[in-house]
């Protein structure tokens, strides 16, 4: 890792406007290496916009940020090989097989030959898709698709993994299994940024950021935000939203 800084992501007054709408307003975030950072907030709070800026696919209107040691305004292309992205919508190719999807993404990141083969096998194992390599992606179950999307984003061993509402429309058991995988990845040193609006998932994160109408209203560990369990997260957030309105 390039930066000796303990933060893998740092933003400085990051702002994005779409016309009159301020989607993200003066955001100052610090996210530590190797932790699961939960990005919370209602729909339209600016979480996805923030993630898109951090991934280097959307330029901020003003302010900037450092992601994995690179400036998101000046060096967005360099960020791309350091990150993996799992979007809200399932976005692998439905008419390609499990193996072909992984093969495609491995080659896009310049991983070829025997190395690619080894990595694909490892990823299929992590995703629990052994024996399904030749299945067309469209024939997988929801949980299998989601795990395939996750390992596709991991094939190039990125430092940071962004997951935008990865558990939308997934049953509780599959969700729990998915979070177990995420925890395992954090233990192995990956930094994970997960957006969600489900509070039970928030308790599983190492630290949280709560966004509302483009502003970061709170930032801290679940314990800090609940004052060691005095309130629930829900109570805290209701209070914050009222204060912001």
């Amino acid at each position: 890792m390039q930066s000796s800084n303990e933060f893998i992501i740092e933003t400085f007054d990051l702002t994005k406007r779409f016309g009159d709408l301020v989607a993200v307003s003066n955001l100052n975030l610090r996210i530590k290496k190797g932790e699961i950072f939960g990005f919370l907030g209602p729909n339209g709070a600016g979480k996805t916009t923030t993630i898109r800026m951090l991934c280097g696919i959307l330029l901020p209107t003003s302010g900037t940020g450092i992601v994995a040691g690179y400036d998101i305004v000046k060096e967005p292309e360099k960020i791309k090989s350091k990150i993996g992205y799992v979007s809200q919508r399932f976005s692998l190719y439905q008419d390609l097989t499990v193996y072909e999807n992984l093969y495609f993404y491995a080659h896009l990141y310049g991983i070829t030959g025997g190395e690619a083969k080894k990595k694909i096998e490892k990823m299929i194992e992590i995703a629990g898709l052994k024996g399904r390599e030749k299945a067309l992606t469209m024939h997988l179950s929801g949980g299998q698709k989601q795990r395939l999307a996750l390992v596709s984003a991991l094939i190039h061993e990125p430092e940071i993994l962004f997951l935008d509402e990865p558990t939308v429309g997934v049953d509780p058991i599959t969700r729990k299994e998915f979070w177990d995988i995420l925890r395992g990845l954090a233990d192995r040193g990956y930094s994970l940024i997960v957006t969600t609006h489900l509070l039970d998932e928030a308790y599983k994160c190492d630290s949280l950021g709560f966004m509302h109408r483009g502003k970061l209203l709170a930032h801290g560990t679940p314990d800090q935000l609940t004052e060691n369990g005095k309130h629930t997260l829900e109570e805290t957030f209701v209070r914050l939203v009222k204060g912001n309105e």
């Binding site: 791309k80 090989s81 992205y85």
Partner: peptide, 13 residues
Amino acid sequence: EQGTFELLSTTPV
């Protein structure tokens, strides 16, 4: 339309 372009744009291609 299928959202695969967004994912491609996060890769170094």
